[in-house]
Computed example of a mutant assay.
Amino acid sequence: MTDVVPLVGEPLALDLVNTRTAAGDLLATPEQLRAWARLQAGRLPDVAPDDLDAVRDVRAHTAAALKRVRHGERPDERDLAALNDAQRAAPAISEVTWDGTGVRVERRRAAPGLAAWLAEAAAELLADPAVTKVRQCEADDCVLLFLPAHPRRRWCSAARCGNRVRVARHYRKTHGIDQARID
């Protein structure tokens, strides 16, 4: 089954990593990057998703670091350095404004770029103690990651992989197929 629409709703860095599925790369073209950015509306600032190579580079380094960190291992320094470099390309500033009753501080990027925002999201996820709870979907043909809100969650999506696993299990049961023979 090819997933045409990327899975969204996980932490932003996981949504980015999950654009690389078992079915292929969902960010293979600039058009796909723009479509993914639209799906993330409200979670991303108003930046032009124009640097596909930079975003894919952030995704690769995020995935590599996440693979190690979620298992309690030290990430490769090259992955951390690449994520830091992506953030440095658009430095964050605390912009001070007056809202009519008091001073507000909003974090903004000077010369925003999508890769910098995504690298920042990756840094936040990698530093979050919850990163060790990130799991891979238990469906045989799925590589997507998720951060379970419930400890019994087993699939990236109950509607996608969960239903497929349940239907396959029901089929095996009703047709007398011995799971031991399949494995």
Rank of each mutant, 00 (worst) to 15 (best):
A123I: 09
M1G: 13
A121Y: 05
R164L: 09
V131M: 06
S157Q: 08
V105G: 10
R59P: 02
E120L: 11
M1T: 14
A111F: 11
D15P: 04
D183F: 09
L66N: 06
V165D: 07
A90G: 04
G100R: 11
P112S: 04
G9L: 04
P148L: 04
A54D: 07
L145S: 07
T2H: 14
A130I: 10
T97G: 09
P49A: 03
D25M: 00
R166M: 06
L145M: 05
G100W: 07
L39I: 06
P112R: 11
R43W: 00
D50T: 10
R88C: 11
D140K: 13
A54Q: 03
A123L: 13
A122Y: 08
R104Y: 06
R38P: 00
D51Y: 00
A13F: 03
W98L: 06
C161R: 05
D51L: 01
D25V: 04
P30S: 03
K133Q: 15
E31V: 12
T132P: 06
G9H: 04
F146T: 07
V17D: 03
E95F: 08
R152K: 15
T132W: 00
E10Q: 13
A82H: 01
G42K: 04
V47R: 08
Y171A: 14
L44A: 04
A119F: 01
A123N: 11
Q32P: 06
A149V: 12
Q40D: 03
G9R: 07
L27A: 01
L52G: 01
R38E: 12
G9S: 07
Q32E: 12
D51I: 00
T21S: 11
L14C: 00
A89C: 02
L39F: 03
C137N: 05
A63W: 02
D79T: 04
A158C: 10
F146Q: 08
D25I: 00
T19A: 07
L83E: 06
G42N: 01
K173S: 13
A48H: 12
R169A: 14
P129D: 05
N18Q: 01
G100E: 07
Y171P: 01
R43H: 10
R160H: 11
A92K: 12
A54C: 02
A89K: 10
A127K: 13
Q179P: 15
L118C: 02
A22K: 12
C156L: 05
E10C: 03
C156I: 06
L12P: 01
R109E: 05
V143N: 10
A13I: 08
I93N: 10
D50P: 01
R20I: 05
W155G: 07
R154P: 03
R154S: 05
P11C: 09
R153N: 08
A22Q: 13
A35S: 06
L33M: 03
A60F: 01
D3R: 15
A92H: 09
K67H: 15
V165A: 14
D140L: 14
W117V: 15
A23F: 08
G162Q: 05
